[in-house]
Computed example of a mutant assay.
Amino acid sequence: MLTPDLESLIARLPKAELHLHIEGSLEPEMLFALAARNGVTIPFASAAEVRAAYEFSNLQDFLDIYYQGMSVLITEQDFYDLTWAYLERASADTVRHVEIFFDPQGHTTRGVAFATALNGIERALKDGEARLGISYRLILCFLRHLSEEEAFATLELAKPHLHRIHGVGLDSSELGHPPAKFQRVFAKARELGLHVTAHAGEEGPPAYVTEALDLLKVERIDHGNRALEDAALTRRIAEAGLTLTVCPQSNLRLCVIPDMASSPVKRMLDLGLKVTVNSDDPAYFGGYMNDNFRSITKALGLSAAELVQLAENSFTGSFLPGEDIARHVAAVRAAAQ
């Protein structure tokens, strides 16, 4: 049950968002505005029709429309506007730090230059830091349905900009595309000094999580739900203090879970896992950070102490330096008083 006290606590707790695809924050209204601005034809007559299309039976259903929506992002200003709109929503949810994914291969394959996307996103992130007090890290994601050779080509495009990029990730269609497929490019990314994370165990089996740990040597796991099916793997993650970036409303909308009461967040907390709550692709999944917090609090009966723990985990699981983490954790505890 979501009491007024818990509602208030969620609203005021400082948070970090560690699992957010910036292209997945493209709201239908902005999709239409950018399509008109750029002369792009889209197969929908209204924003309401777009929202009606956001009914998915699995990850691939979502990805099909996700890549279709991406087609309206063409200019640097488009990427700026997209990112700034997300940051304003994040600020309203008391998000103080974001580590966002972007999918350059989803743009370069359409003829949009790598730097065009990067420049627009980064400019908005810098403005967000200056005007909203939201710090950031930017994570380049490889699309796993493409080849490792194409991932290497994208990493090559990124090399002149590595001082502006903080890590690499792995997203898109999970089934049939195990982490092992990208072992060499992740080794190169680590060699270049980049942080590494990967989607694993959302639809793919627990073995994909093990591969992400052993072969990609990830620092945290995006999703990781199915790791709970393997008791030894679960203990390993807990003992290593690895962070899991769980996305409750995404899990529900993609039919990873049958209902919100089946979200793994509570069980992960009970098992001593460093779980965090995130919004993933909020424009498609019906809500931003606090929407996800409210949903799981109601469905799982989370306590104030558990909400505070989730907020703390979001900072301790970030790629921020230790002194910044300590400052944010102190702010979480102060807000909880």
Rank of each mutant, 00 (worst) to 15 (best):
residue 2 L to D: 15
residue 2 L to C: 14
residue 3 T to H: 13
residue 5 D to F: 10
residue 8 S to M: 10
residue 9 L to Q: 06
residue 9 L to V: 09
residue 10 I to E: 08
residue 14 P to E: 09
residue 16 A to P: 12
residue 22 I to R: 10
residue 29 E to W: 14
residue 30 M to G: 00
residue 31 L to P: 01
residue 37 R to Q: 14
residue 38 N to F: 12
residue 38 N to Q: 06
residue 43 P to Y: 15
residue 49 E to F: 00
residue 50 V to H: 05
residue 52 A to E: 11
residue 53 A to G: 02
residue 55 E to R: 11
residue 57 S to R: 14
residue 60 Q to R: 09
residue 62 F to S: 05
residue 63 L to P: 05
residue 65 I to S: 04
residue 66 Y to L: 01
residue 67 Y to S: 00
residue 68 Q to H: 01
residue 73 L to T: 05
residue 84 W to S: 01
residue 85 A to V: 02
residue 86 Y to L: 08
residue 86 Y to E: 00
residue 91 S to H: 13
residue 92 A to G: 08
residue 94 T to G: 05
residue 94 T to H: 09
residue 101 F to D: 07
residue 103 D to K: 00
residue 108 T to S: 04
residue 113 A to T: 04
residue 113 A to Q: 04
residue 113 A to V: 03
residue 114 F to L: 02
residue 116 T to C: 03
residue 118 L to I: 01
residue 125 L to T: 01
residue 127 D to W: 00
residue 132 L to W: 01
residue 132 L to N: 02
residue 135 S to I: 02
residue 136 Y to R: 09
residue 149 E to A: 14
residue 152 F to I: 04
residue 152 F to V: 02
residue 156 E to Y: 14
residue 158 A to H: 07
residue 159 K to M: 12
residue 161 H to K: 09
residue 162 L to K: 06
residue 163 H to D: 15
residue 168 V to Y: 07
residue 168 V to N: 13
residue 171 D to P: 12
residue 171 D to W: 14
residue 171 D to G: 14
residue 173 S to C: 15
residue 182 F to Q: 08
residue 185 V to F: 00
residue 186 F to L: 06
residue 189 A to I: 10
residue 189 A to D: 03
residue 193 G to F: 03
residue 197 T to C: 10
residue 197 T to K: 13
residue 200 A to C: 09
residue 201 G to N: 12
residue 202 E to V: 03
residue 202 E to C: 04
residue 212 A to C: 02
residue 212 A to H: 07
residue 213 L to E: 04
residue 216 L to P: 04
residue 216 L to F: 00
residue 217 K to H: 08
residue 220 R to E: 05
residue 225 N to Y: 03
residue 226 R to H: 11
residue 227 A to H: 00
residue 235 R to N: 04
residue 240 A to I: 09
residue 246 V to K: 00
residue 253 R to I: 01
residue 254 L to T: 15
residue 255 C to H: 15
residue 260 M to E: 14
residue 260 M to T: 05
residue 260 M to S: 06
residue 262 S to L: 12
residue 267 R to Y: 04
residue 268 M to V: 12
residue 269 L to Q: 06
residue 275 V to P: 12
residue 276 T to M: 11
residue 283 A to D: 02
residue 284 Y to R: 02
residue 284 Y to I: 09
residue 284 Y to V: 02
residue 286 G to M: 11
residue 289 M to E: 12
residue 291 D to F: 03
residue 293 F to R: 13
residue 294 R to N: 14
residue 295 S to N: 12
residue 295 S to T: 13
residue 298 K to D: 13
residue 304 A to L: 02
residue 311 A to T: 10
residue 313 N to V: 09
residue 315 F to L: 11
residue 315 F to V: 10
residue 320 L to M: 15
residue 322 G to H: 08
residue 324 D to V: 12
residue 326 A to H: 10
residue 327 R to A: 15
residue 327 R to N: 08
residue 335 A to I: 14
residue 337 Q to F: 09
